[in-house]
Each structure stands twice: as C-alpha cells, then as structure tokens.
Design a protein around this nucleic acid. Structure first.
Lengths: 159, 159
DNA sequence: TGATGTAGCTTCAATTTCGGAAGCAAGTCA
DNA sequence: TGACTTGCTTCCGAAATTGAAGCTACATCA
C-alpha cells in the first residue's frame, strides 16, 4: 500500500495521518499555532525547502485545514490562516509538545502554554469527557465496531 | 535543512516530530495501542512494506519507545511492546483519532474508547492541568523562553 | 530612470527514500 | 521429505525530497 491510500482507510487515525501526519506538515502547524502566517516565516522557522512548503500549503488549503487570505492588494500578498478544522488540530501539536518536553528534553521547555482564562502556565492533559478524570493509555480500552473488526480480520486484538 | 536535523532542534515539537512524526510510525503506534505486537500483524494492519516496517521498528527500539521481547525460545520469536515512553504517546494518537472522527468521517467512528474506571464510552479531551477546564487553541497563549525567542529571531509572533 | 530589494512562489538536477517483490534462515507440522 | 510460518533482509525501479537558482510583480532608493 502506498501512503496515498491511507486517506480512504476505514480507520480515522489513518485518515488523519494521511492528512496531516507528515513531518513538515506538523511543523507548519506548530508554526501556525505560534502565530506565523506567511510563506517566508514558515520557511525560516521550519527550515524546509520552498518547494515542499508550497506543496504542503496547497494540500492543507485543499483539505480545508488552512485558508489563503489576501492581506495586501498592491502588491498582492497572501497569508495562511487556520480554519476551524485547522484550529482543531491543536491537541495533536500540544500532545507532541508534552511528550517531547517530557522525554526528549533536559531542562526547561522552550515554550510554555498559558491558559487565558485562568492565566496559569498549564500542562494540558487528556481527560475523560464523561467523568473528567485524567486518562492515559492504561485507563483505556478500544472497542471496535463489528464492521471495522471484520475489515481487520479479527487478528491482533490480544491487548 | 533535512529531516534528520529536526531531532536537534530546540523545539520539542520538532524533536517529537523527528522521533515519531512520520506516517508509518504513527500507524505502527496506532496498531500497538490496538494491541498488535508482532511484525506480521503490523504488516497486515498497516499495509506498509516489510522493509520500512523493519526500519521503523529498529528506530523505535533505538529511541526507547518500543521494547523487543522474546515470546518464544524455540523457535526464537520476538514481539514489540510499548515502553513507558511509548505508552505516553497515547494522547497523540487519540488526538488524531478525535480529529479524524470529527472532520474526516461521515457516520460512526470505527473505534470507541472506553474509560476502564467509569466504563463509559469517552471522547478524551485536552484540559488545563491547573483549573481542569477543557482547552482549545483559542484558550491558549504561547510563552517563549527568552533563549528560544532569540533562536527564532523575534519574527513571526503576531498571533 | 535605473538599481536594488522583497514576498511568494516555480523549476530543475542530484540525491534520498519508498514500494513491491523476492529471498532466506530457523524452525514447526504432517 | 516437503510444505508452511515468522521475522526479517536484499534488490531495483519509481517517487519524493533537497538545495539552488530563477521568476514575477511590485516598492523603494538615488
């Protein structure tokens, strides 16, 4: 299977991966959440090639994650802004930051997240929508729909 | 800059991306959280080539995300198990699933997450560690350390 | 009136990575 | 004995990526 086929997978993780799960796209998103909007800012801050950046931005626009918007008429200039769909990717980037901060860093994280409403430096965590308790892998069990289970062939559920 | 250089970035998101932010690695992790442990299960469920799977597993073991463990002596057989570091990646995969369920799917998500302690089907969400409120992109502000801000060159913080 | 600069790309050649198929080693099973 | 299984490795053509250079439309400076 090639990567292009992932987007038609039944699994929504696979679809999300196909959409935004590559190295450079994730870095572009990080930049957007830090406030960058312009082609050259993305170039500078990510270090990627302009060719790839151009491709990735087009893909993100096509997906509806990012919107291309005019900020100057003369000369004509555009910037890239996250849509609702794009802003909703925040937990993914934050989850990566938290993991990176914890496991790949000695010392002080380069970025802190401040919760606007309580003004605290926060360490966002996954919690159960029903009982509100923090959740980790060990607290969860996956339940597959019958159809999805059939697609997977019944193997590999010895969790 | 090439992708290999990301792991030495000051930004911990970039480091996390370098470690686990590629398509196939994310799918392997998804499989692990669904309970797969064996080479052939990963092959079957992800559809990737064995060449790549082999490479990725080695990388994950080298990083300490996954542990290679003997489950049969004769014949000698191994399985791949998430370490603590690996289990801690759960929020990333869950965040991707939530986003995929919401934005890339019509209908019923193929996998539900059950919170063991309350037995509810849950939709894990990011919450503030300090006040416990659910958080989204709009509720957060990034605060950069002085050093990191200097590295970035001061540009692009018009958020 | 040029000369230089900037934002936002596109094009191109060289290199790297990937995909798919085949092979292989060490066993088991019949 | 011969087929099958698991868990890989090797190989090669195809596709993606990198880095540099170029290009367009304007602005600004002299």
């Amino acid at each position: 299977m090639s990567r292009a086929d992932l987007s038609s997978s039944a699994c929504t993780v696979a679809r999300a991966v196909a959409a935004v799960g590559d190295e450079w796209t994730l870095l572009i998103l990080r930049e957007m959440f830090l406030g960058s909007r312009r082609f050259d800012d993305f170039l500078r801050q990510t270090g990627m090639s302009s060719h790839l950046l151009s491709q990735r931005l087009k893909k993100l626009v096509a997906l509806g994650v990012v919107r291309r918007s005019v900020y100057s008429d003369r000369p004509l200039r555009h910037e890239y802004i996250l849509t609702e769909m794009g802003k909703d990717l925040w937990p993914i980037i934050v989850a990566m930051k938290q993991w990176g901060d914890r496991w790949l860093l000695d010392g002080v994280p380069p970025v802190q997240i401040v919760h606007k409403s309580c003004e605290c430096v926060t360490h966002p965590q996954m919690t159960c929508s029903e009982c509100g308790e923090p959740m980790q892998a060990r607290d969860a069990r996956a339940r597959l729909t019958r159809g999805f289970s059939a697609v997977r062939g019944g193997t590999a559920d010895r969790a």
